[in-house]
Nucleic acid binder design. Sequence first.
DNA 1: ATGACGTCCTGCCTGC
DNA 2: TGCAGGCAGGACGTCA
Length: 281
Amino acid sequence: MPELPEVETVRRGLQRELPGREIRGAEVLWPGSVAAPDADQFRGRLAGQRILGVARRGKYLAIRLEDGEWLLAHLRMTGNLGVREAGQPTDKFLRVRMALDDGRELRFTDVRKFGRMWLVEGEELDDLAPLADLGPEPLDEAFTPARLHATLSARDRAIKPLLLDQAFLAGLGNIYADEALYRARLHPLQPASSLSRAEAGRLHEAIVAVLLQAIDNCGSSLENFRDAFGNEGKAHLHLQAYQRTGEPCTRCGRPIRRLVVAQRSTHYCGFCQRLKRRVGA
DNA sequence: ATGACGTCCTGCCTGC
DNA sequence: TGCAGGCAGGACGTCA
C-alpha cells in the first residue's frame, strides 16, 4: 500500500512529466473518488489549468495548478496516479482521467475505491484543509531525534499505533512502521513515553533509514503499487519484518512473529524487540 | 487522550 | 469446480 516512499516515487515520476502541461479536461468515472468539490465543479475547474509542479506532504500528492489551486490525491490502499498515452487501453478500475495537452492522460485508478482526490485553494501546502492536521515530515530537517523524544515522552500510548497516527508523524503506514521498529529493536507495544533518549534516537535513525532505502528502491510493490509509469518498485524485496511471519529474523535467526496491534497486522522479532519495563522518570 | 469498532471496497485466499 | 466467508487495510466517525 502506498506509504511515504511509494507516494514519493509517484511524485518524482509525475514531476518529470507534468510541469508545463495543460489539463484539457477531466472525466470522473467514479464520483466517490472525488472528495471535494462535487464532480461537476471538479471537471469545470480543472479544465484549462496548467500544471506548475508536483509536491508531497505525508502520503498526499499535491499538484500545483497555475491559478492557485491544488489537485490533491491520497492513494490509500490501491490508488494509482500515472501518465499514459490517451489511446492506451484503460482497465476497469479507472476512476478519474484528465486529458493533457500533449496527447497523454493523467489517470487515477483504484481497485478498492478508498483513494480520494481534492481540488482546493491555498498558497502553501500547510494551508490546505486535508493536510492541516498532519504531523512533521520524517525526512524534514525539523524532524530531529530530540523532537521525536520530546513528543514521544508526552504520549501515553503504544509506539506502533502512534507511528501510524498521521497527526503524530506524516507518511508511515503499516509496512514502514514495522520495519522502523524492527530496525530500532523496539517492541510495537512499548509505551511511547517509556522510550529513553537513546531509544528515541534509534527510532529516529530507523525511520529515516527505512524510508530513504525504500525511496531508493522505488517503493514496495506488495499489493499492486506501481509508479507513475506502471513500473513496480523493489523495496519489498528488502523488507525484514513486514509479512515475514515465521521466517527467520535477519539478526538472530528466530522466527518473526505476528501480533495484532490497533487492528493492524504487526510483525516483529520477539527476541530482538523485547518489551522493556518502563524506566523510571 | 486512548482504544475499540464499524464503514468504505474488492481481490484473493482458504475451506468445504 | 464453485461458492461462501474471511481477510487486508488508511482514514474517519462514533462510542465508551
